[in-house]
Amino acid sequence: MDRKDFLASIGLSAATFAFINCAGCAKSSNAPSGDTSGPTGIDFTLDLNLPANAGLSNNGGHLVSNGVIVARTTSGSFVAAQRSCTHESYGLIYQPSASRFYCANHGATFSESGTVTNGPASRALTTYHTQLTGTSLRIYS
Rank of each mutant, 00 (worst) to 15 (best):
E112L: 13
Y94I: 15
A81C: 12
L137H: 14
A8T: 05
Y128C: 11
S84A: 09
Y94V: 15
N105S: 04
H62P: 07
R123D: 08
V116R: 08
F110E: 12
T135S: 12
S29N: 01
A52W: 04
L56K: 04
A124H: 04
F44W: 07
F19I: 04
Q82A: 15
P96G: 14
A54G: 06
A15Y: 01
A121Y: 02
A23D: 00
V64W: 03
L7M: 07
Y94L: 14
I10Y: 03
V68W: 07
N21M: 02
P32C: 01
V70Y: 11
D47W: 02
Y128H: 10
D43E: 03
Q82S: 14
G61Y: 12
C22K: 01
G55I: 09
P39H: 05
K27I: 02
N30Y: 02
Y140E: 08
A31Q: 00
L125R: 10
S57F: 13
T74N: 14
S57W: 12
R100Y: 12
H62N: 15
V64T: 15
A54I: 07
S113D: 13
Y94M: 13
N58T: 13
S84N: 06
A98S: 15
Y94A: 15
L92M: 10
N66E: 13
N59Y: 08
C85H: 03
G114E: 07
L7E: 03
G119Y: 10
R72D: 04
A71H: 09
S136A: 15
Y102S: 15
E88Q: 09
N21L: 01
A52L: 03
K4M: 01
A121S: 11
S28V: 01
G24A: 02
N58V: 08
A15H: 01
D2N: 13
D2V: 04
L56I: 06
Q95S: 15
P96F: 13
I69S: 08
T133Y: 12
I20N: 01
R72Q: 08
G11S: 04
T130N: 07
S111Y: 13
Q82K: 07
S9V: 09
F6E: 03
T117K: 12
G24W: 01
S65W: 03
F44K: 03
P39F: 06
A26E: 00
L125G: 13
S111M: 14
G34Y: 00
A81E: 09
I20Y: 02
